[in-house]
Design a protein around this nucleic acid. Structure first.
Lengths: 257, 257
DNA sequence: CCAAGGCCTTGACTCTGGTCAATCCGATCG
DNA sequence: CGATCGGATTGACCAGAGTCAAGGCCTTGG
């Protein structure tokens, strides 16, 4: 993990910081640093009290939880994203482990500075509240996804969601190896293989990490996509979690095969 | 659902509103109303855009999610608690359904007023951010609980948590019927019965909704309680979710039998 | 007091998904 | 080019949890 100088103009436009006053922005960036991680690098460990807020600038970060020797992948984050925001606001330890999946860059801001800024700058407070509301909403949807759908249904919804996020064309690219995708979807690699195979009759063609959906309507009948569970909005246009949650209700575009 | 006059001094000390300025407090309460619900009454429906923030004053509220004909109970809230805070901040629809389990009273504040106040009052913004951070942390713990533990382990942890919240004595009272507790714990009523029976060798004595833990140490060896998953802090002393998340790290008291 | 209904429990069975082991395949390296 | 390694797949088997059905118990109301 190496540190470099900060590109302030770019940082200024990040979802959380664009609501901050000039004074707050100066306070937050004064003690901030950019950290670079190589693939597999550990950014934050579950249970540790780093007391840092991280803003993901480049790369991909995996959140994982562990208990009693068991592990589960919880989420895969791509820029722009906030990590450990809740812990920084409360001043508590990390609830999850954060690990770089690919070469990544994050801006690290001391939690102390975040809490100071919160009480003084209503614009920043609003931005933090909105981002947290977005994260919370996303997690509620994820929890419902796991409680209400079976493995096959989760996979089918996931494929449709990814298809939308990647432009709506018939073919999509899985964002990680199948082994990891399986854990993110709450199943074993063996079961993911079988679940994928079971979707062939619904027009799912598999070629490594390239997936083609030749009958999205048939797949959608199975997946029963629901804006109260799924979010097909991409993060590619630089919006924060709050804005992505707001845009979630524009209807999905399913192009008949 | 009937409406009555508001007891302002009491409302003023609620977790979210105690951080607001006098002006903000006036803005928020001007259009607020108190709603009373009888058992089973519907407070908010999944997918609806009430655009209201609810503060639970009395009673108990159940949050449930539904998809494709399936239902799952997600959480059981007791005063003081906030409901639909994330939806109010973002101006989006309810992600879950909220239903009164017993006679309940809630303060309903228009989401519009909440969003207005957010941009103006840093104290209120901070309070909202902290409460949302608390809700988010709680949900992360719940998600890890479901992903990482099996049904028996979830039940064992739940019993220990309840024991602590109810004073730490050997006997505790389930907060709802077993049928509902089963759904909250992510299992069927039949399975809860069997799981409870399987805990008898660990000193769990069952008498209706009265449960006695005669060997908490043995039960804890099975449950492997973890402050990154469990929260044994009671809400009885009037603190909000943020403060309960902060206090979570004081060690659990396990009295040897 | 009796009857009815709901909840809980228990048992037998089913099914989804996990485990284990063998194999296949593609990438990498000597 | 062949050897090797790790991920992916496949099959057989197993375990945890859901389903269905029957029975017991308690509460409620006539």
């Amino acid at each position: 993990m190496t540190r470099t100088e900060i590109d302030l103009p770019r940082i200024r436009r990040l979802p959380l910081l664009d609501g901050a006053s000039a004074e707050t922005f100066a306070l937050l960036t004064r003690e901030a640093a950019i950290a670079h991680l190589e693939p597999g690098g550990l950014l934050a460990a579950q249970g540790e009290s780093d007391d840092q807020l991280y803003l993901l600038l480049e790369g991909a970060i995996l959140l994982e939880g562990a208990w009693n020797g068991r592990e589960a992948d919880l989420a895969l984050l791509q820029p722009p994203a906030t990590l450990m925001l809740a812990s920084a606001v409360l001043g508590g330890p990390n609830l999850v482990t954060a690990r770089a999946l690919s070469s990544s860059a994050v801006l690290a801001i001391p939690g102390q500075a975040v809490r100071q800024a919160l009480g003084r700058d209503a614009g920043f407070g609003r931005a933090v509240a909105e981002e947290l509301a977005g994260c919370f909403s996303g997690l509620v949807r994820t929890f419902k996804n796991h409680r209400l759908r079976g493995a096959q249904e989760r996979l089918a919804s996931y494929l449709l969601t990814q298809q939308q996020r990647q432009g709506g064309g018939p073919t999509l690219r899985l964002p990680c190896r199948k082994r990891r995708l399986a854990s993110l979807l709450g199943m074993t690699p063996e079961n993911l293989s079988r679940a994928l195979a079971s979707l062939v009759p619904y027009g799912v063609e598999i070629d490594g990490v390239q997936i083609t959906l030749s009958e999205p309507l048939a797949l959608a009948r199975l997946a029963a996509p629901d804006p109260l569970i799924d979010n097909h909005v991409s993060s590619a246009d630089g919006t924060g979690q709050a804005e992505r949650e707001r845009r979630r209700f524009v209807r999905m575009q399913l192009n008949p095969a």
